[in-house]
Design a protein around this nucleic acid. Sequence first.
DNA 1: ACTGCCGACATTTTT
DNA 2: TGTCGGCAGT
Length: 667
Amino acid sequence: MKTFVLKSESGQNASKNYQIKYAELLNSAQYKAVMAQNGAYLVIAGAGTGKTRTLIYRLARLIEDGVHPQSILLLTFTRRAAKEMLDRASTVLDERCKRVRGGTFHQYCAQILREHGGEIGINPTFTILDASDTQEVLQHVRQTYKEKNKGQRFPEKSTLYSIISAAFNKQIPISSVLQLTYPQFLHFAEDLEKLKLDFIEYKESQNMLDFDDLLVLTKDLLQSKEHIKAQVGLKNKYVMIDEYQDINRLQADLIKLFSSVSGNVMAVGDDAQSIYAFRGADHSNILRFPDEFGAKEVIKLEQNFRSTQQILDLANNLLLQATNKYDKKLFTLREEGDLPGLIKTSSENEQSDFIAQYVLHLREQGIPLNDVAVLFRNSRDSYDLEVDLARKGIPYVKYGGQKISEAAHIKDVLAHIRVVVNPGDVISWSRILTLIEGIGPKSASELMMWMRGARDGVSPSKNYLQKVGQLSELLAFIKEKSMDVSACVEAIKNYYEPICRKKFDDSPKRVKDLEAFVTIAKPFLNISQLLEDLTLDPIDGTAIDTEKTQNEENPLVLSTIHSAKGLEWNTVFIIQCVDGIIPSGYSVDSEDALEEELRLLYVAATRAKDQLLFTYPIIKENGFGEYFSNPSRFIQKVPVNLLEPWNLLRDALPDESSPDLLLKNEE
DNA sequence: ACTGCCGACATTTTT
DNA sequence: TGTCGGCAGT
C-alpha cells in the first residue's frame, strides 16, 4: 500500500527534516517559540534567557520552511542589533538570512514614506532631522514667542523638544504633557500649541521630517490609504519585534498596520526591563499584547544562561521591591559564584581608583578588559573615572551620551553637505555662512536673500561676496562630486580645519575627529546616503576612539545602563549607586518613574555573568561644595546575605612595588 | 555688525 | 559639562 503524508497548515513541522537540529540546540520554551507558526505570539524573555538566540533560530527555521527572507520583517531597537542578528542567523543557517528585512521602526517608516508618501502629499526627497537638528528648528521658531514673553522664563529649545516630542509619542495634547512633567510652564500652554503649529509648518515648508514625523505620518498614511496598507501588509508575511517592552502606543499601532494582512506577529520582550518611558514607551503595552493582537500563546523563557545564581538572587530580590508584580523568577543551572559586592568609597575619586585597580587585578586573573563593563545612570557619571583611566593608561570605549554626529564640529561639516542636498535649508546655510570670519547673523540672512533671487535689488555687497568665494567653490565641488563621498568630506575638512582651530579651544581633539570622520564617510555611495544613515543610525560617542585603540588591547567598556541593554560581560561594576542618581532625583516624586529606575538597576545587574559589584562614594561634590550622599534606596533594601559589603583598605606603604592594594574583607 | 568673554543654567536615559 | 544670553569692546 502506498502512503502519502499530507502536510498540515501549521504546527506539524516537528517531523520535518531540518538542516538545523532545533530540538537539540534549544530548551523547550525556546523551541516552542522557534516552531511557532501562524498567528500572534508573545515571548516573555527574562534577562539572559536566550532571547536573541530564539529570534535567530526562528528566522532560520522560517527560512528553512521556505518562507521568503524578504517577506520577513524584523524590527529592533537599533540598527546594530538587527544587523548582528541577521549576521548570526546566516552563520547558523546560510546567506539567505541576510536578505531578511531588518532595522528600526524609524528606518522602516522612512522607507515606506519615500515609496508611498506621495499619496498623502509628502515629497519623497524629504530630509530627516535628528534630535539636535530638530532642536535647531525649534530654536528658530522660538524667537517670536520668546520676545512676546519677554522677562519671563520661556522653555529652552531642548525642553521644547521633549515637550513636543512627548505629546507626539504619547499622543496627548501639550497641556497634558505640561501638567505631567512641566507644571512650571503650564501658563504657556496656549503659546506652545501655537509654537507647535509653526514648527510643523516650518518643517513642511523645508521638506523636513523629524523622528516623530516618520512614525506619525506612516501611521496616517497606512490608516488613510487602504490600498497601501494592503500592499505593505502583503510584503510582511512574518513580523518580529524585539524589545517590545520599550515600544510606545504609536509603534504598537504601527505593528498592527504592518502585519494587517497575515496577522503573523511575534513580539519579544521583558516587562521587567522596560526603561524607555521617557520617550513614551509604556510597559503595559507588552502586557496588553495578547488581547490586542489575539495572541495564540504567551511563551515564557525563564532559564537564565548568563549569570550565577547569586547574581540572579539579587536581581530577583530587586524586583520584589516593585509594586508592580512581575511574574518572573529567573533561575540558572550554572555553577555557584561569588556574592555580589557592595563597595563604599570615601570619594568619587577613590571610587575611580578602586575601579581602575580592580580592573587591572582582573586582567591579571585572565579576564580581558573588554569582558568587564562599568555601568552608570547618567553619561556624565563616568567623567571622573575617564580621567583616571586615561591617566593610568587603561584603554576604554564609552557608549551612550552625546553622539559624535551631534557634536558641533561634525555638525558644521555636515551642514556643508546639507545645503548641497537641500538648498532650501536655511538653518544650515546660516550655520556655514556665519562660520566665515566677519559674517554674523545679519549678513548671513542678507546673503541668503540675495541668493534666493536678489529681491528688490538688495545689494549683494561686494565685500561679502569676496569672503564667500571660497565657500562657493567648495559647494560647487561637492555638487559635482556628490557620488564621491570621500572626496567631498576631504574637501570640506580642508576648508573647515582652519575655522575649527580658531573656533574651539579644544581643537586638536576635534581635528582628530574630523580625520576619523573622513574614514567613516568613505564607504557611503553618495552624500544623501551619508546624511540619512548618520541620522537614522548615529555613531556612538567614542566609536571614533575605538579605531585608534584597535591596534592596542581590547578596551574596557564604559556605558550608560540604557546603552547596555541586551549586552553581557564577565564582570560588571555599577558605579554611583547614590540616591539621587539612581533613582534619579527627577523621579522621586512619581511612583511610576521610581519604578522605572528600579527596573533600570535590574537591567544593569542582569548584565553580569560572574561578578557584580556596586560602588558608591560617600561624599559627592556638587557645584559649591561637598555633601554626604546616601546609598541608593534600592540597594539599602537588599539583605546582606545577598549583597556582601566590602571593606577597602588603603595600603599605607608608599614604596610598595605594587600599587595600593584594595582588599576584600570576608565577613 | 561681529567677536569675545562672563555668568547662569539646565541635565537623566535614545531613535 | 557645554551651551546660551547678555554685555562690552573693536
